[in-house]
Design a protein around this nucleic acid. Structure first.
Lengths: 217, 217
DNA sequence: TGAAATACAGGGGTTTTTCCCGCGTATCTT
DNA sequence: AAGATACGCGGGAAAAACCCCTGTATTTCA
C-alpha cells in the first residue's frame, strides 16, 4: 500500500519530533521531511513533492500562512493541513483562504492528526470539532463577512513585504534599504497598506500581524 | 531498574501526546500522568507523586509558573523541568525563581528532553544550550541588575501607566493629555521605561506588553 | 482598441517623534 | 547631611512619519 507522504513544518523541534513520533504510529502515513519555517517548507515541497503538508502557522521568518499561499499556488496538488495553537475564529478565514484544506487546533485530540491528514489527502477538507463549534457559535457574526474581503488579501505583494518588515519592528528607512527602494517609496507602501488594513498606527499594525500569524510575539 | 516517573503538563493535547510518544522511546522514563493546566498539575502531583514534572508554561504564562511554585513548596522532592516556547531571557529568572530545576526551549533538540529529565531527577539543574547562550550573550546587561527582578518590576508607577498607554497605541502627545503632563514629560518617561525594558522601538514594546499580559492582541 | 485601474517608484513639504542634553523639586534612604 | 530616585519640564537638532501629488509600465475591461 502506498503511504501518505507528509512534510511536517513547525519551528519547535521538540513539538515537531513529537508529532513525527505520533505519526510514526500510523501505518498509512510516512513523514518524508521536516521544515522549521515557511521558506524552508516551500523549498522542501519543491524538493520532496509530499502529498500533505502539516503546517504550523506561528513561525519566524516566513509564517505558515504565507507559505501555505505559495505552496497552494505553485503546487496545487499538495494539500496543506494547518495546525494552530490558537483556536481563534479570527484565524479561520485567513487560513482557509490561504489555500489550506484543513484546520486543527493543537489542543485537539491527537487522533485528529491522522484523521485530518487522511481527509485532506483524499481532497476533503477537515476542521477540528472545536473549530467547528467556534464557527457555529459565532455564526451570526460570520454571516455578514465575506472572506474574500479580508483586507489582508487586498494587499499587493510589495505591500505584504513592507507590512511584514514593519511588524518586525523595522523603520521605513531600514525597509527601504532592504528592498532597495527610496524611503519615500517605502513610506508610500506603508501608507497604502495601512489604509487598506484600516489601522492607524504601528501598534495596531503589529497586533494585526500577530493575529494573522505574520509574526510571532 | 526503577524508571523515572514523569508527569507531563501541557494544554495542547497534540503536543502533550507527542512528547509522551518521544519519552516512551526512552527506556528509563515512564509517563505516569498528564495534566492540561496548573491546577490539574498540582492535583496530579499530590495523587501520583511523580519524580519529575515536565511543565509547559504556555501562553497564559502564570499557569505553569504558579503551579511550579506550589509544587516546589508542597512537594520539594518533586523536581520540575520547565518547557517553554519562548527562549527569551525575560522568562529565565521568573522560571528559576519559581523553583524549577531546569529550563528547556521547545525549539531544542528532542534529545534534550530526556537529558533534562535525567539531570533534574539527579537533583542537578539543566539549561538548554540555547538558553545558556542567551544568558551569556546578555551577561553584561544582567551583571548590573538584580537578577531576581523582572525588568518590568523596575518600572515606576508612572512609567507603567505610560507603558500601557503606549502599548495600546497612543502617541506621546495623547498620553501627555491623558495624564495631564507635558509632551516632554511623557517622552521622558517613555525613554526611561524603554531603556529599562531593553527595547528600542514601539513594535518590540508592544510585543513585550503582550507577553506580559499588559495588553491583549 | 482605447480608457480606466492598478502596482510600483518617487518628490515636496509639514508635523511628529526621537534623542541628546539640561534644570528644579519632593521624597526616601543611608 | 548627602545621595538616590521619582517626577515634571525645557531646548534644539535630527530622524522619522505623514499627507498629498506625479509618472510609468502593465493589466483589465468595456
Amino acid at each position: 500500500m502506498q503511504k501518505i507522504r507528509v512534510l511536517v513544518v513547525d519551528d519547535h523541534t521538540i513539538v515537531r519530533d513529537g508529532i513525527c513520533a505520533l505519526l510514526a504510529l500510523a501505518g498509512d502515513i510516512e513523514v518524508v521531511g521536516e521544515a522549521t519555517n515557511g521558506n524552508e517548507a516551500v523549498n522542501k515541497v519543491r524538493e520532496l513533492n509530499p502529498d500533505v503538508v502539516l503546517m504550523d502557522i506561528a513561525m519566524p521568518m516566513m509564517g505558515g500562512l504565507e507559505a501555505t499561499r505559495r505552496i497552494n499556488k505553485e503546487f496545487p496538488k499538495t494539500k496543506v493541513l494547518v495546525l494552530t495553537q490558537y483556536d481563534d475564529k479570527e484565524y479561520f478565514f485567513p487560513v482557509i483562504e490561504s489555500g489550506a484544506l484543513g484546520f486543527i487546533s493543537k489542543a485537539a485530540a491527537s487522533s485528529e492528526l491522522t484523521a485530518g491528514i487522511r481527509s485532506v489527502h483524499r481532497g476533503d477538507s477537515y476542521l477540528s470539532p472545536s473549530v467547528t463549534k467556534l464557527l457555529v457559535d459565532n455564526y451570526q457574526n460570520m454571516a455578514g463577512k465575506n472572506p474574500s474581503q479580508d483586507p489582508y488579501n487586498q494587499l499587493t505583494e510589495r505591500e505584504r513585504e513592507v507590512f511584514k518588515l514593519l511588524a518586525e519592528g523595522h523603520s521605513t528607512q531600514e525597509i527601504a534599504e532592504m528592498l532597495v527602494i527610496t524611503r519615500k517609496t517605502a513610506e508610500g507602501h506603508k501608507t497604502n497598506l495601512m489604509a487598506k488594513l484600516g489601522v492607524h498606527n504601528r501598534v495596531d499594525l503589529v497586533k494585526y500581524a500577530i493575529r494573522k500569524g505574520i509574526i510571532t510575539v
